[in-house]
Structure formats: C-alpha cells, structure tokens
Write a protein that binds this DNA or RNA. Structure first.
Length: 426
RNA sequence: GGAGAGAUGGCCGAGCGGUUGAAGGCAGCUGCCUGCUAAGCAGUUGUAGGGGUUAAACUCUACCGGGGGUUCGAAUCCCCCUCUCUCCGCCA
C-alpha cells in the first residue's frame, strides 16, 4: 500500500509514476480524502463536546445534583455521532479499497516500458552449450529417462501437475538441499519451514489479496489459502511486529511447494514442467533498513545467481521495465536460464524490492537505533531457485548424444554419487 | 468432533460503568551515585488519525482481539464472530 500522506502531498507525481505502469486513475483519491477529513473533523468536534459534558455529568452526579438537562442534550449529540460515524466508516472503507488496489511505484532507475518488450538485459553469464546432435526437450528426456510421468500425474490431479520418479524425484530433492545448504552456510540466511496454508491476512500483507484472488487456491469454507510462494508465509512471520534495528537485516530462506491456479494462462506452456499448479521453490526473503534495500537487492540477486553459476547453467539477468514489474515491487530482476530445446531464455527466478509496500500492509516495523518512532522495514524476496524449472534446465543443458544426462558436479554428493542419468526406454 | 479457559501497552500482568492512556513489574531512555561488572536512587518512554507550525510547541479524536448493542458516559454490562491455550476423542 502506498503512503496516504505521500499521495496527498504528491498526487501529481504519484499519478505520473503510476502511469508508467499502466492505466491507473488517481483522481478519485482527492475527493475521497477530502470527504473523509471533513467528516472526521465534524464528528471529532461532537465527540469532544460529548466527552466534556460526560465529565460534567460525572461531577454533578457525585455532588448529588441534577444532570437531566445535560443528559437530554447528549442524547441528540450521541445519535448524531452514530450517524456520521457510520458514513465515515463507509467512506474509509471505500478509500482503503481504492488504496489496496494501487500497485507500488516503480523505482526511478527502472527502465520505462509498456510490457516485457521493454525489459533490459543487464548481464549475460556463461556460454550457450553447443550440441552436435539434435537436442531433445525436457519432456522427451524425462520420459525416456523414466524420471517424469506426466500421464499418471494427470490421472492423479489433472492437467499441469507432475509426478517425479526415481532419479527425477531424487534430483528435485538434491537441488532443494543443495540450494538451502548454499544459502544457509555461505549467504547467511536462516532456514525456515513454514505452513503451506496461510490466513487471508497474510495474502493481503504481501499483496496477493484482494486483487489477485483468482490466482490462489482457497480452502473451502475457510479464509485460508494454499501458498502461491514461500514469500507469503515467510514475509508474514513478522506481521504486526516492531523489530529493533539491531536485528536487521533478517534473512530467511525456505523450501516450499507453491500452488497457483494459473488463471488466464490457457494455452501457454501446457506441457512439461514449466507451468504447473504445484511446483517447488527455494525462496529468499529479507527484512532490511530502508537505507539498505537497494544494495540488499543486488546482494539477493547475486545469491540467486550463485546457484546457477554453481550448477554451470547459462543465464542472463533482466531488469523488468515499469510496465512488467509486479504489483508490489518497486524494482525486479528476473534471472532467465538458457533452455536449448526452446532455443530461448526462460524465467527461473524473480528478485524484487518492495520497499515499505508490504511492510505497510503487514505492519512490519522497526525501532530506529537513535530512538524515535517505529518505521516500516523494507522487504525483499527472490526465488533461488524455482526447482522444477531448474530440473528442466539441467536436463536440457546437460543432455548427451546417447540420451543420458550428466549430473552437475555440485549435485553429485546429493545424488548418492550418481554422475549421470542413464537412458532407460524409448 | 466434545468440554473448559482466555485475548489489555515493546513484553509480563492488574483493573470498581464516570480524569484509566490505563496500577505494578520487565525492557528502553535520561540524570545522580558507585574506581570496573552488578546493584541503588530520581525522572522519563505507546500507536494511529485529524487540526496547527517552515519545523516544533501545542491541541483534538480514536485505540484494552474484531463487530454490533445498552448508556449521557463502556477495558469494565449484553449479543455475535475470530483467534489462542488446556483437557478428552481421533490421528502421522
């Protein structure tokens, strides 16, 4: 959520910056805000009067004197207060709903653009692998190696699910362990294993609700949701808390499955592991002092990149433009891994700074060292990495002419020493 | 699923329908004292939203899980909801 005072003082500027993202009309804000304040002043004056008179009544009663006249007057005042309070409540609800629907303002360094066509490649790391045979995609490889069973997955759960088998299942587990170990031992993150179901407040806190409910799996008959990303439970760990500045930065990493409806993605990536209703991800989340959030974003992105480097995968870092940056984010880097079978780079991680947007919604603050009022922390998060897509990348990039797939060196200890996935069937 | 208990400030914890923003304690901050550490003494410290100011000062309102109600007046009385805990049942 944007700061209401900021909007009040910088309406033009905010409107201009929102326009970089898309079509947002800030005009109703001013009207609602003025209306709200007018009502507030009226009702507060009445309440002041009521409080004063109540004190008088108390004194009179104590002195055993008659207070009927004052009490009679207050009857009317109280009724009027009730009326205005009701109207005011409706007005505030409307204003709040409006604010909740506004995305964050993008950072000034973010390239201006309408859609993903405006994204800018910041750097490319590694080289495209060269193949002297016709490459297979991960679907073909997964089937011929007998490590992914898409048909039975659909029998179990429907379209857009996967069933990993044998070395395939182990590969996911190996990747997960490898990533968590890397982040906890070398990057200073604390491992967390959160609930995979959260209350709706958590989704409001991180920005999935109220606007993107159609993307979430809701628990029937309850205000709970399956998590679409670990970002939701991990960021909300400190919801409604006042931290101390000494505790910052806080860095958490977590493995979780992620559940997404993928509404509106009909026809896109319908086959394979790329786009599923359930996928595994290792996430990084940070709570930092506002002054540090942009350097922390670079560091977080570097932490995610390190996974790709250690796995020996070719990738590029893309800075999302204003039109493509997510709702809650001020600035986002996507990591895109090279997929030879698709002859293209595909998103495997997204690293974002949310500044105080989520913190304001979730009430995550810290007490500054020098004293003074609690301030909102800045929150960041990034995938490091999406495990399923990492499997895709490994299969496709490490495939051999004979249909086998070499296991990257760093994963072998996690694979019981296995160095190669062997061809099993045609 | 059944029975009970509870929800108060950064934390713990009192609370009679009428100066209760809320006792007491802890933690924090500021002094004083003590050659270190600890202790002691005094003072001080909530959040949000309005008004006001260049900024402060100042001032008003609200906030004792959430929402309704009773009342001139509710942390205190009534109703509904949510959540947490304990016990029983079931269960990995």
């Amino acid at each position: 959520m944007l700061d209401i005072k900021y909007l009040r003082d910088n309406l033009e500027g905010a409107a201009a910056r929102l326009a970089l993202r898309g079509d947002y009309d800030l005009a109703p804000f001013n009207t609602m805000d003025l209306k709200r304040r007018a009502m507030l002043q009226e009702v507060e004056a009445l309440k002041e009067r009521r409080n004063k008179v109540s004190e008088e009544v108390a004194k009179l009663k104590k002195a055993k004197e008659n207070a009927d006249e004052l009490i009679g007057e207050m009857r009317g005042v109280s009724a009027r207060i009730k009326e205005i309070d009701k109207e005011l409540g409706a007005c505030e609800e409307e204003l709040n709903a409006f604010l909740m629907g506004l995305p964050n303002l993008t950072h000034e360094s973010v390239p201006v653009g309408k859609d993903e066509g405006g994204n800018v490649t910041v750097r490319t790391v590694g080289e495209k692998p060269v193949f002297d045979f016709e490459v297979k995609d991960h679907i073909a490889l997964g089937e011929s190696l007998d490590i992914i069973d898409f048909e039975r997955a659909s029998k179990l759960a429907g379209a857009r699910f996967s069933l990993m088998k044998g070395a395939g299942a182990r590969l996911e587990r190996a990747l997960t362990s490898f990533m968590l170990d890397l982040h906890t031992t070398e990057h200073g993150y604390t491992e967390m294993l959160p609930p995979f179901i959260v209350r709706s407040e958590c989704c409001v806190g991180t920005g999935q609700l109220p606007k993107f409910e159609e993307d979430l799996f809701k628990i029937e008959g309850s205000a709970q949701y399956l998590i679409p990303t670990a970002e939701v439970p991990i960021t909300n760990i400190h919801r409604e808390e006042v931290l101390t500045e000494d505790e910052l930065p806080i860095r958490y990493t977590a493995y979780t499955p992620c559940f997404r409806k993928e509404a509106g993605s009909y026809g896109k990536d319908v086959k394979g592991l790329i786009r599923l209703h359930q996928f595994s991800k290792v996430e990084l989340v940070k709570f930092v002092a506002p002054e540090d959030s942009y350097t922390e974003l670079e560091a977080l992105t570097a932490n995610a990149e390190e996974v790709l480097k250690k796995l020996g995968l070719h990738y590029r870092v893309v800075e999302l433009c204003t039109g493509d940056t997510g709702f809650s984010s001020t600035k986002t880097y996507d990591l895109e891994v090279w997929l030879p079978a698709q002859d293209t780079f595909r998103e495997i991680s997204s690293c974002s700074n949310f500044e105080d947007f989520q913190a304001r919604r979730a009430g995550i603050r810290f007490k500054p060292k020098g004293g003074g009022k609690p301030r909102f922390v800045h929150t960041l998060n990034g995938s490091a990495l999406a495990v399923g897509r990492t499997v895709v990348a490994i299969l496709e990039n490490y495939q051999q002419a004979d249909g086998s797939v070499v296991i990257p060196e760093v994963l072998r200890p996690y694979m019981g020493g296995l160095d190669c996935l062997q061809w099993r069937k045609v």
